[in-house]
Simulated scan of single mutants.
Amino acid sequence: MKELTRNNQVSLTNTVSITLNNLGFNYSKERAALTDVNLKIITGEKVGLIGANGAGKTTLFMAICGILTPNYGDVQILNRPIVPGRFNPDIGLVFQNPDDQLFCPTVRDDVAFGAENMGLAPHEVTERVETALSLTGVSHLIDRIPHHLSGGEKCMVAISTVLAMQPQVILYDEPSANLDLKARRRLIRFLQASSETIMISSHDLELILEVCDRVILLNQGRVIADGLPQKIMSDRVLMENNNLEVPHSLTHKH
C-alpha cells in the first residue's frame, strides 16, 4: 500500500470509532470483493472512500454495517464487535438511492421509524424526529409524502432517518449522485458541519476534497492509499493507475 503521511488533525489519544482487522469478503470463490482490509478511523474524522466502479466501496460499507458477513476478519465500532445481521444503533448507513430508504406514508413516519424500533418513548421519538429534520433543514416537509419530493429533498430526508437514531458513525454511499448543483452545495455544507464520525463513498471527488480530512483509495477490494485528500488525488500516476482522474480543482496547482 502506498503510505502517504498526513497531518493528524484528530488527536491519537481520542477514541477509535471504526476498526477493521484483516477484513475479507468474497461474493464467489472466483472473485474477492475485499482483501485484507485494515483500517482505524478516529472519532470525529471525515473520511472519503474513493475508487473506480467495482473497487469494493459499497461492499466495504455493507460489511462495516453488518449487512454482509465477512469471510474473515472483523469489524469493531467503538471497540465493540459488529455482529452481522444484528441492528446496531451506533452506526447508520445512508443509501445511494433515497428511494431505498424511504417507504412510509409521510416524512414524519419515515424519520420516526428507526427511533421507534429502538423502543424509545413516543415523546422522545417526536423530539428526535424534529431535531433530525431541523439539522437537515427540511422541517417544513414533515407531513409530505416522501415519493413526491425532489431529489435533493429526498436526500436530506433520508439523512434525517439516520440522524434520528443518533448514531456515532454514519456511512454515506454516493450521497450527491442524483442532486442538482444547489442541492449538492447544501449537502456539502451539511456534511462539513456534521459532528459524527463519517465515511463518504463517492465518485464526486470535488465533494471529497471539500468535506474530508482523509481519503482511502480502494482498488479490487484492497486499500491502495490512505492519507491527505489533496496529496492522494493530485498524484496523477496513482489516480490513473486506479482508473480515476485528478479532480479539476487540483489540476492547476502542481
Rank of each mutant, 00 (worst) to 15 (best):
M1L: 07
M1Q: 10
L4D: 13
L4A: 15
Q9H: 15
Q9D: 15
Q9Y: 15
V10D: 10
L12C: 14
T13D: 13
N14G: 13
T15D: 14
V16S: 00
S17N: 09
T19F: 05
N21P: 11
N21V: 12
N22S: 11
N22M: 03
L23Y: 02
G24N: 06
S28T: 00
A32C: 07
L34T: 02
L34F: 10
T35E: 07
D36K: 05
D36I: 04
N38A: 10
K40Q: 07
I42L: 07
G44Y: 10
V47S: 01
G48P: 02
G48C: 11
N53V: 06
G54I: 10
G54P: 10
T58L: 08
A63H: 02
A63L: 00
I64S: 03
G66W: 00
I67W: 04
L68C: 04
T69W: 07
P70V: 03
Y72G: 14
G73I: 08
I77H: 00
I77S: 03
R80G: 08
R80N: 14
R80V: 11
P81I: 11
G85R: 11
G85D: 09
G85C: 01
F87K: 12
N88T: 11
G92V: 01
V94N: 04
F95K: 09
Q96E: 03
Q96M: 06
P98W: 05
D100W: 11
Q101S: 03
L102C: 02
F103S: 12
F103L: 04
C104D: 07
C104T: 06
P105G: 12
T106M: 00
V107M: 04
A115F: 04
A115S: 13
M118P: 09
V125M: 03
V125A: 04
V125R: 03
T126V: 08
E127D: 14
E127Y: 11
R128G: 05
V129D: 10
T131N: 14
A132E: 01
S134H: 09
T136C: 06
S139W: 04
L141S: 07
I142K: 09
D143E: 15
D143M: 09
P146F: 00
H147L: 00
L149V: 04
S150M: 04
S150G: 03
S150R: 08
G152A: 04
K154D: 01
C155R: 01
Q166F: 08
P167L: 06
P167E: 10
Q168P: 10
Q168T: 06
V169R: 05
V169I: 13
L171M: 00
S176Y: 03
A177V: 02
N178R: 10
L179K: 06
A183Y: 04
R184I: 12
R185L: 14
R186F: 09
F190C: 02
Q192T: 11
Q192N: 15
S195I: 05
T197G: 13
I198F: 09
I198M: 14
S202V: 12
L205R: 10
L207Q: 05
L207H: 07
V215T: 06
L217D: 03
L218P: 08
Q220H: 10
G221R: 06
R222A: 11
I224V: 06
L228N: 02
Q230T: 08
Q230Y: 13
I232T: 02
I232A: 06
S234E: 01
V237F: 14
V237D: 13
M239F: 01
M239K: 12
N241H: 02
N243R: 12
T251I: 15
H252M: 07
K253P: 00
